[in-house]
């Protein structure tokens, strides 16, 4: 079992529904976010291209955040989901420094918080909130170890890229480009 996500940049319109849905689902305070939108424009008028990405924790295979955590609050659970146990976190921020994706933030209550792939939903057989709400159906979530899962099929079929591969973190979010 290895959970991952594929996000189709060709379909994403950057509407930020994933951001709002996550904030409400997970009680993320207004002013903070576990996921966010990045738009990259290339070229000059009128020869332009635009890539839109919904970004979040990459739930990497090689996790500097977990390695640098002095208390063990940052840990990996079933399916490779990287989580933070709030009451074990001392808010030192070492994980924030070590993450090449800037995917973590310090919650106003003092602990570090981040995307959980909505494991509370996933264990009930639901998609993460961001995936379930996306109006363009541009996000795919599932088991990368299962060759018959929708995500495995689309990752195999389409041209993909990951973010900051040079960091060696082996991210498990794949962008369809």
């Amino acid at each position: 079992m290895r959970y991952g996500m594929a996000i189709d940049t060709k379909k994403c319109v950057g509407c930020s529904d994933c951001v709002v849905a996550c904030q409400l689902e997970n009680h993320v305070p207004v002013g903070y976010a576990r996921d966010w939108i990045v738009e990259v424009t290339e070229g000059t008028f009128p020869n332009l291209s635009l890539e839109i990405r919904s970004e979040r924790c990459n739930h990497c295979d090689n996790t500097p955040c977990v390695r640098t955590c002095p208390t063990g609050a940052s840990h990996i659970i079933e399916g490779g989901i990287v989580k933070v146990t709030h009451n074990e976190c001392i808010g030192c921020g070492a994980c924030i420094q070590s993450c090449p994706y800037d995917a973590r933030y310090t919650h106003p209550e003092g602990y570090v918080d981040k995307c959980t792939f909505c494991d509370h939903r996933v264990k009930n057989g639901q998609d993460p909130a961001c995936v379930s709400v996306c109006p363009t159906h541009c996000m795919y979530f599932g088991d990368l170890d299962d060759p018959n899962s929708e995500i495995s099929k689309i990752v195999n079929r389409r041209k993909i890229k990951t973010l900051a591969p040079e960091a060696g973190t082996l991210p498990q979010i794949f962008y369809l480009v």
């Binding site: 997970n26 305070p29 207004v30 106003p108 209550e109 939903r121």
Partner: peptide
């Protein structure tokens, strides 16, 4: 920095059920 929370509590998310 708006630490204003829409909700009164901040417990772990609850099940839809």
């Amino acid at each position: 920095t708006p630490a204003f929370n829409l909700f009164k509590d901040n417990e772990e998310p609850i099940d839809d059920t």
